[in-house]
Structure formats: structure tokens, C-alpha cells
Design a protein around this nucleic acid. Structure first.
Lengths: 189, 189
DNA sequence: CCCCAGATGTTAGTGACTAACACTTTGATA
DNA sequence: TATCAAAGTGTTAGTCACTAACATCTGGGG
């Protein structure tokens, strides 16, 4: 990793941190992209060079591909919903408490700001795509694809409710446990 | 219903029809709100007085409250997922072929335009709220609310996949049947 | 050491959306 | 029927997210 790459990653994280802080303290709509840029000591244009839209300052993370590979890691003997559900649980293992606080702040914004909530839900759609691609690689039957996608979206919908609940508890609850609980509510077992 | 109300509804429908036509033919991003206003013979400001945002020109409909009441109409003896699922099926009964074509055009936009897709998914969130409110009115246990919401979001996620599939078939397939099929994929039975 | 590519800043522009004001039409009431 | 408040509409001016084009500087490979 070159110096340039490191500087780029640094700037991006700096921008994201200032953005979350300002959005949380001042309000999302009340904070302009220029404000975020000024706080980070760069020009507004630089923000757009790192994040395609203002919303992505909150939404950007790297979890999506992880989920798809976690699905493939589950034993194929399990029913489809269990394979996807357990993969989602396993993805919920969190890192340091600092990471947790940052994720929680972002999540609160995603819940309270309509535009962010919408885009966050849409990212489920991308995740479902990844799961379908992972599971249907060998057998491209449109009918099976339909079933896998329906199951994936159902699991993701339930998991999303668990995420909301986790945010409500201020990050105190066990996220993986909540996901399991939500999935159990839906599927029984 | 007064003359004023009728005129207001007329103008709103006129705006929506011109918007869908222009968005479909010219493209969503390539069509400005001013273009829609001009096509309908009103000023841009009038558009915003009828629709809060450009996106709502596509998204607006009246189906949401219907779903919630349909859930209440299902026999309480059924498991939760079946009650919600059958209610969604029953809501899918469509009217005239003209209505169907209009819905199909709107749906195609909601699928292809990212911002619309996101907001459409977010409307599921509102529907889930309505279902939770309808089913948890008497017993405000947060735990039961959690379960109902998780189940509702799972059913809605699956139904959404059915809606996408229906659009793919150009509206030829039986929508209620597709929803049933999606729900069966998820829940078995 | 040099030169190119990538990162940044500046400027000017488009378009969604809001606020404020003036004008007209509608519908209920005196 | 005359009147007046309320609601709908147009106009203007403004903010802000986002884009394109151009100039500048800096890091890294030759």
C-alpha cells in the first residue's frame, strides 16, 4: 500500500468522522457538504471525489461482500432460510467499542433521516443480489433464483428489524442474538 | 366532494400521468420538474404543491392503508406469517387493464431508477408500521411488536421480489399467484 | 532528476426545492 | 345575492446538492 493510498484512506475516514459528528450534533439537513469539507479542512469538491453523494458519507461501509461469502460458508444441508439467517448472524460480530459507537451513530442517522433510511434499505437489495449470485452460480434456473431472492429478502427484512431494535437499546443488546430472535419469530424453529 | 376537491384530484392525476410518460420516454434524470409542469400546463411551483418531491410523482398511491386493514380481515387462528401473507395476496387484485398498465409503468421506473427503488423499499417500512399498529393495538408488549414487525418485513420483502418478477413478465403473470409462490418459497407450506 | 498520473482547488453552471408576495377562484355565510 | 375568508396558482429570488472544465501541486516510477 503506497503512501498515496494511505493518505486517501485517511482523508476518507476523516471526512466520514466529521460528517457523522456534524450530522448528529447539528442535524443532517442543517449541515451542508461545504460544512463537512470545512471541518475536515478540504474543499467541497474533495468530498465529492471521495463520496459520490452526501448520503454516502453515512452509508459507506465494507460489510456487503462479507455477507455473501458467509452464506457460502454455511453447510448446504441446512434449509435455505437457515443458511442465510446464520450467515447474517455471523456477520454481526462486532469489533472494538469504538467501532461499535461509530456504527451506532451511523445507524441512528440511517433510522431518523428518511433519505438515509431509504438508501439503507436499498442496500439490502444489493446484498440479496450478492447472495443470489453466490448461491445460484452453478444452476441459473430463473425459478430457483426467484426462490433464493425471495428468501434472502425475507431474511434481510427480519434482520433489519433486529438492527433497529439494537439501535433502540443504544447498542447494549447482543446484535447476533437479536437477529436470531427475529429470524425465529419469522420461521419458528 | 366539492368542486375544489375534484379539480385538485384531477390536476394531481394529470401531473402524475404526464410525469410517468415523460420519465418513461425521455428518462427520469433527463426530465426536469419544469418539463412535467409545462406538459401539464401549470407552473413548476404547482407541482410541488401537489407532490412533495419529484420522486413522489412516481411513488404516490393509495394502497398502504388497504393492506393493514386486509391483515385484520384474516382469521386470527392462522399463524402470523400466513395472516400477513394472505393479506398481501388479496391486495394484489388489480383493476382495469389501464390501471394495470399505469402501475406497470410506475413499477418499471421504481426498479430502474435507484432513488425511486430506495424510496419504494422504504415505503415497505411504512406498511410494516401500519401492520404492527393494526395487530398490536390491544397488547403493547414491545416483544410481541418486535416479532410482528420482523414477520411483516420478511413477508413484505418476499412480496417485493414477486412484484419485481411480475414487472419482468410485463404484467402478464398472475401477481397474486407470484406472491403466494414467493411466500411459499420462504415459509414452506 | 524528470515527468506523468492522481489528488486538490476554483469557477461556473444545472436543477431540485423553499420562502415570500401578489393575484385569482371558490364556497360558505350574512 | 353580496361578501369575505380560504385555498389554489404564478412569479421571483434564493439555498444547496451535484457536475464539468481547467489550473495547480505532489508523489512515485522511469
Amino acid at each position: 500500500m503506497s503512501l498515496r493510498d494511505r493518505q486517501r484512506a485517511e482523508t476518507r475516514l476523516l471526512l466520514q468522522e466529521h460528517a457523522i459528528r456534524l450530522f448528529t450534533d447539528v442535524g443532517y439537513d442543517a449541515t451542508t457538504v461545504a460544512d463537512v469539507a470545512a471541518a475536515a479542512g478540504v474543499s467541497a469538491m474533495t468530498v465529492y471525489r471521495h463520496f459520490p453523494t452526501k448520503e454516502d458519507l453515512v452509508l459507506y461501509d465494507e460489510y456487503d461482500p462479507v455477507t455473501a461469502s458467509a452464506v457460502l460458508g454455511q453447510p448446504a444441508s441446512l434449509p435455505l432460510s437457515a443458511r442465510i439467517g446464520r450467515a447474517l448472524e455471523s456477520t454481526a460480530a462486532l469489533g472494538s467499542s469504538q467501532e461499535k459507537a461509530f456504527l451506532l451513530a451511523r445507524l441512528r442517522l440511517m433510522i431518523s433521516v428518511p433519505a438515509l433510511r431509504a438508501r439503507h434499505l436499498d442496500s439490502q437489495y444489493a446484498t440479496a443480489d450478492a447472495i443470489v449470485a453466490a448461491l445460484c452460480r452453478s444452476s441459473p434456473s430463473p425459478d430457483e433464483e426467484f426462490q433464493v431472492r425471495a428468501t434472502a429478502m425475507a431474511c434481510l427484512g427480519a434482520a433489519h428489524v433486529a438492527l433497529l431494535r439494537w439501535a433502540e437499546t443504544g447498542g447494549e443488546a447482543d446484535l447476533a442474538g437479536l437477529i436470531r430472535q427475529a429470524l425465529t419469530s419469522v420461521f419458528g424453529d
